[in-house]
């Protein structure tokens, strides 16, 4: 899908600072004997918007799931916001409350209303007063433009609305970093734009973002770096303009020719 956002995007607040948000050094991961991630080195600075692309099974989802320890890595280091991820549960919980995550299948809690979905973690993890949590939740629901759905259940919303709720739910924890794991892959074409719009607004506010996505229009418009992965390793890392117009590796060229053919 071609999206032309170049003109509408407000870049005034999209500033990348020198401060390091995530540092991944020589990281390796195995599933049993399968070597899923190989010698990953990646530094993300605050305010960066990174798009991770690659064929399926290339390890891109695994990579961002390692950042909030949904997957355990077996070698190397991952430091998120100054906290090193190890088997220490306290550190893991600390990192998870600073890092928001949006999933392909939304993963909203179907037994709770939209509002309760958004207030659950602030109340139980951040121990914020209920009223204050509701206020914050309504603020973010307005931001993703569905405050009127607050008292409905996830099952009553469309896919695009559910994904926007999922984004609002993450934002309610006031995260410093947002991870997106193919946020638009499970959506009908009509709904992809509303989710991407929300993500673009987030980028405009200077949020540090890592997105695994196949939306190349979004990558071109928003990302300041595109990472291409294949067979568990980073094959190419480039700024979006060069990535799309002048890819360096043969593998990247092949991938781009396949997804941009239509």
């Amino acid at each position: 899908m071609e999206l032309n956002y170049e003109t509408e995007i407000d870049r005034s607040r999209m500033r990348v600072s020198d401060e390091v948000a995530i540092r991944i050094a020589d990281m390796n991961k195995w599933y049993g004997t399968y070597h899923a991630l190989r010698d990953i080195n990646l530094t993300v600075r605050r305010g960066e918007r990174i798009v991770i692309a690659g064929p399926s099974g290339s390890g891109k989802s695994t990579l961002i799931r390692c950042i909030n320890r949904l997957e355990e890595h077996q070698g190397g280091r991952i430091v998120v916001d100054g906290i090193e991820l190890s088997s220490d549960l306290k550190n893991i919980d600390k990192v998870r409350s600073e890092v928001g995550m949006v999933f392909q299948h939304f993963n909203l809690f179907p037994h709770l209303t939209i509002l309760e979905n958004c207030t659950l973690a602030p109340i139980w993890v951040r121990q914020i007063a209920r009223n204050e949590a509701i206020e914050t939740a309504m603020h973010f629901l307005e931001k993703v433009r569905i405050p009127e759905q607050a008292h409905k259940y996830p099952g009553q919303l469309s896919g695009g609305q559910q994904q926007r709720v999922a984004i609002a739910r993450s934002l309610c924890m006031k995260p410093k970093i947002m991870l997106f794991d193919e946020p638009t892959s499970a959506l009908d074409p009509e709904m992809i734009k509303e989710v991407l719009d929300t993500m673009i607004e987030l980028a405009e506010e200077g949020m540090t973002m890592l997105c695994v996505t196949h939306e190349m229009g979004f990558a071109q418009a928003v990302a300041n770096r595109v990472i291409f992965m294949d067979q568990g390793q980073i094959v190419e890392e480039n700024d979006p303009h060069d990535f799309f117009n002048n890819p360096q590796s043969e593998r990247t060229r092949l991938f781009l020719s396949q997804i941009l053919r239509h």
């Binding site: 909030n68 919980d93 998870r96 928001g100 999933f103 299948h105 809690f109 659950l120």
Partner: peptide, 21 residues
């Protein structure tokens, strides 16, 4: 679905809170 556990974990809920809520 596994996603429910993952979403709870990703929000920072610990094991007991995730189970309970």
């Amino acid at each position: 679905p596994r996603g429910q556990y993952e979403a709870a974990e990703a929000l920072g809920l610990d094991y007991w809170k995730a189970q309970r809520l």
